[in-house]
């Protein structure tokens, strides 16, 4: 999903940067607020950031014969709401743009919009919808984490199609072309990432119960002897 440095026309580069910037600034505020008001969840915040850091560094083979990398933005979006991931995701992209020549500064806005804004919001939305429809925590986590991954790549395809419409078939043709490269390859990766998200939340529900209750992921355990509050 990394659009390479210098490829987006200047107008698009500026446009996506302007579009992504408010989300990232708001996300930075959300992170500061979270750390200041709930220092006890800082540890989990670190875990959410670390999850994106690892997953976005690993390129995995797919059924299409090409390889791609997951995004890892889903769990953080579910735990801390999407704004937090707008900052954490952008930090990851900046690291890769500056040190790995992967992505770039001129395409940081577009990449951040796909990776750190649309992905987390889509994942969070899927998670909330699944929960509202009565799904359990883990199925909802699977849906949210997998969709955060897939939505990022669909967004990148759309961004590329907007910048480079096909001479003959226009925007739709270009979108189909870029989706052909990204989306199909990404499906097994999104499923794998969803399973990893489920694994992470299985560990957290056992070991970080107080935090998950405070974040509203789990309902406080009913007091057994008195049998009231639930």
């Amino acid at each position: 999903m990394h659009i390479a440095e210098g490829f987006l026309p200047a107008g698009h580069a500026v446009g996506w940067t302007v579009a992504a910037a408010p989300f990232v600034v708001h996300g930075a505020r959300a992170v500061v607020k979270e750390v200041r008001e709930n220092p006890e969840t800082t540890l989990l915040l670190g875990a959410a950031g670390a999850f994106t850091f690892v997953l976005s560094a690993i390129k995995l083979p797919s059924v299409t014969g090409s390889s791609s990398h997951p995004t890892g933005t889903g769990p953080g979006a579910i735990l801390f709401r999407p704004p937090v991931m707008a900052l954490l995701g952008t930090v990851v992209l900046l690291f890769q743009a500056l040190l790995l020549a992967h992505g770039g500064l001129t395409t940081l806005g577009a990449n951040a919009f796909a990776f750190a804004v649309v992905g987390p919001w889509a994942g969070y939305g899927a998670y909330r919808l699944a929960r509202a429809a009565g799904a359990g925590l883990l199925p909802a986590v699977f849906a949210g984490v997998a969709l955060a991954d897939l939505a990022t790549y669909v967004t990148t395809s759309l961004q590329l199609a907007l910048a480079f419409p096909d001479a003959g078939s226009g925007l739709a043709g270009a979108l189909a072309k870029f989706l052909g490269v990204f989306a199909v390859t990404q499906v097994p990766l999104a499923i794998g990432e969803g399973l990893l998200g489920v694994l992470l939340f299985r560990v957290l529900t056992v070991n970080a119960r107080p935090e998950l209750e405070r974040l509203g992921i789990l309902r406080p355990a009913p007091v057994v002897p008195a049998g009231g509050a639930a």
């Binding site: 999903m1 990394h2 659009i3 390479a4 390129k59 083979p61 014969g65 090409s66 390889s67 791609s68 990398h69 992967h102 590329l160 870029f178 490269v181 990204f182 390859t185 990404q186």
Partner: peptide, 10 residues
């Protein structure tokens, strides 16, 4: 298959 990266392919 070569398993080239999708980013590089684009």
């Amino acid at each position: 298959s070569e398993y080239g990266g999708t980013d590089a392919a684009v």
